[in-house]
Design a protein around this nucleic acid. Structure first.
Lengths: 221, 221, 221, 221
DNA sequence: GATGAATGAGGGTTCATTCAT
DNA sequence: TATGAATGAACCCTCATTCAT
């Protein structure tokens, strides 16, 4: 239902007997269920009962696999953070802001479309002060600093107007994230599901255009 | 409450205790406490114990005032929605997009700075599907539709580029809201509290500039 | 609503200023309310909140008058026992079983019609082992013994067949009481309120006939 | 309980633990405990704490089995109603009133002797308006109507005097039920437990005689 | 691996009662 | 007298977790 971005590498070779094949499948099902429940009710509000039901197993069985509710939540959070890193990937500065930022916006929008529940979990965790992300925030800051430096380089090169680079990254995040966090409201207001087939490219184009104009990226990119 | 015709004499004197003074103060303290707790833990995750402690009273005393956790939450949600209406106010189309949108962005940013917890409660409620906002979403949609019509008018008048008006409203919301929802992260990344004194105007200016450029509002505004 | 059998003696002389006129009226209203609630929910199940609401006063005011829930219940129980003594009155043995038992049956039936809630409170208290009637049961047993002796006298005189006198008293009680305790069921089954106007005499006649035949009271009475 | 067609092989061996053995024993113990507590304190007055203590388990364990206090009460009520149907069984009209009514009275008296608490729960539920018996009262009325028709047939055949058939059924119920509802009082007054060994037949005989005479059932029956 | 049973802690809420005004 | 406020205990029920089988 809600598969990780990386895809399932271990499942390719059928003759391999990975340790705990059943276990791996159970964990995938549990993760999918937990993501929905955590996204809806938050960490404190989620119950292992609800997760177990969503996964179609008993509470006892769930605990056999997850250890504890907090461990499950931590593992999912870590997954999401890993996803961000893959989405964010931001190294090829020489391609210029139009392409680099455009690609980032596209990947981020696709993630919002395909993993809205994961996106919401991250926002919820951040809203409550991110107590369980603290250990990871150092590297997150470092990565953001690097990206900001790249942007500064573009500004100095006259490829875009002089904006606060970090604020720009926030704004890109805010707008793209919105399509996941406010999915229900957007669907209700627009009268159609967010990012359903034919709509995706239009939304991506509109958002990209909006953000690049806001950033003052010059036409030539 | 039960005043005689013309008003009873005993009620004139200003030293008379106005009915419900204690109650009014308690409710204000409870609301303040509940807003923090709901913003941190969500509706399901919040406990009346935590709210009572934050308000400095006992659980029994809390329930004496609130009726039920759900009623308290509903009341706070309603307050927030009322706040939005005041912030949104969007009627004077003839002043043009630069001023009207600029004022809206400013009010919204100030609200994020001054009431971040309230802002987060709204986002959290929306993220979980807004089960308790459903009855109010009709009028919310109507108001948004009216604002979109105003924007369309500006586009037709050549005052801004042709964007999807509703998406523009989403984007403005997303960016301004971000300063409340991601307050902790932003503070951590920028090394200073969001919107503290001297910073406010800079942030408002940067956000306003970014959003109006994104909307393609022409310079003359 | 549910006035005691004895009527209000103290209200006759209007020039008399009985101590606590207001108090007396409050107590009467409280008693009426409490009787309904205790009859419906039992002693343990009744709440002072429900009684206060039925009496149209606040919980604090209720406690000002009643002292405690248990004291209120005890007082009402005592009232009911006093009512029984008045209804039971059984001294004129020489009038013979037909008249003495017939009059008793009639009074008991009228009490069931007019004070069904009081009747039910007594049955409920008896059903749970009568913990609060214990102190009064000695005199109750004595009175019953006296009545049994009268019946034995009638039997010896050939005025009725040889029944166990105490069982006969139980049976009379059981049948007459049934019209109060099972009021709801009887109304539902018969399609009319128990003992409404025109029906009363028919029910009394049928019950009297049934019980006296069961007792084998000879026709001459 | 859930046997495959023809019986699964694995279920044949007697050493296999039948599913829910523990559960069945717990439920039986809980029912027994709950019947006593509900009979004593009523539905509202009964506490799950008291029931758990009477069953010798913890409150949490109790709720693991019962779902809710109301569900437990409903289940017990349904059991009692099922008992009534078995006791009432009233189909063999041609045996005449003496035998049919006599058998019914005997069964009802035995039920009062052996299940006084169950009997009291029914009376208590009826006294408070039978809110949880409402759905079952239609069929109860139907059954009573059929019994009344049988009695009418006997009257027409001259086998008993012309009584109101429904009232007769009420009176039989009232008297037999009394030995359960007023068990404590009767034991106290008579100085011996109701229906203990040697006494049962005497009480049944006396009650049967009393009721059949009241009904005017002719000697030959 | 899977499941029913068990549990101490805590969930939201109501209780009878008291107190200051 | 009357009322709003307050409270410790108890209410029904669910929680995350463990354990025996």
């Amino acid at each position: 239902m809600d598969q990780g971005v990386g895809g399932a590498v271990a499942d390719v070779a059928p003759h391999v007997r990975p340790p705990g094949r059943i276990r791996a499948r159970m964990l995938a099902a549990i993760d999918a269920a937990a993501i929905e429940v955590f996204a809806r009710d938050g960490f404190q509000g989620a119950t292992t009962q609800a997760i177990a039901e969503a996964a179609g197993i008993s509470k006892a069985q769930l605990h056999y696999y997850i250890g504890s509710k907090e461990a499950l939540y931590q593992r999912i959070l870590q997954d999401i953070v890993d996803d961000w890193i893959a989405v964010f990937g931001f190294a090829d500065a020489h391609h210029g802001p139009r392409q680099v930022l455009g690609d980032y916006i596209r990947r981020k929008m696709l993630y919002s479309f395909e993993h809205p529940a994961r996106s919401r979990i991250f926002t919820a965790e951040t809203m409550r002060g991110a107590p369980m992300l603290r250990p990871l925030m150092g590297q997150s800051l470092r990565r953001t600093g690097q990206a900001a430096a790249v942007i500064t380089g573009w500004i100095d090169a006259g490829l875009m107007r002089p904006v606060d680079p970090m604020l720009l990254l926030f704004h890109i995040w805010a707008v793209t994230q919105h399509y996941a966090d406010y999915e229900h409201q957007i669907s209700f207001f627009r009268g159609r599901d967010v990012g359903d087939g034919s709509d995706r490219e239009r939304l991506i184009a509109e958002v990209t255009d909006f953000l690049l104009r806001g950033a003052g990226v010059v036409q030539a990119g």
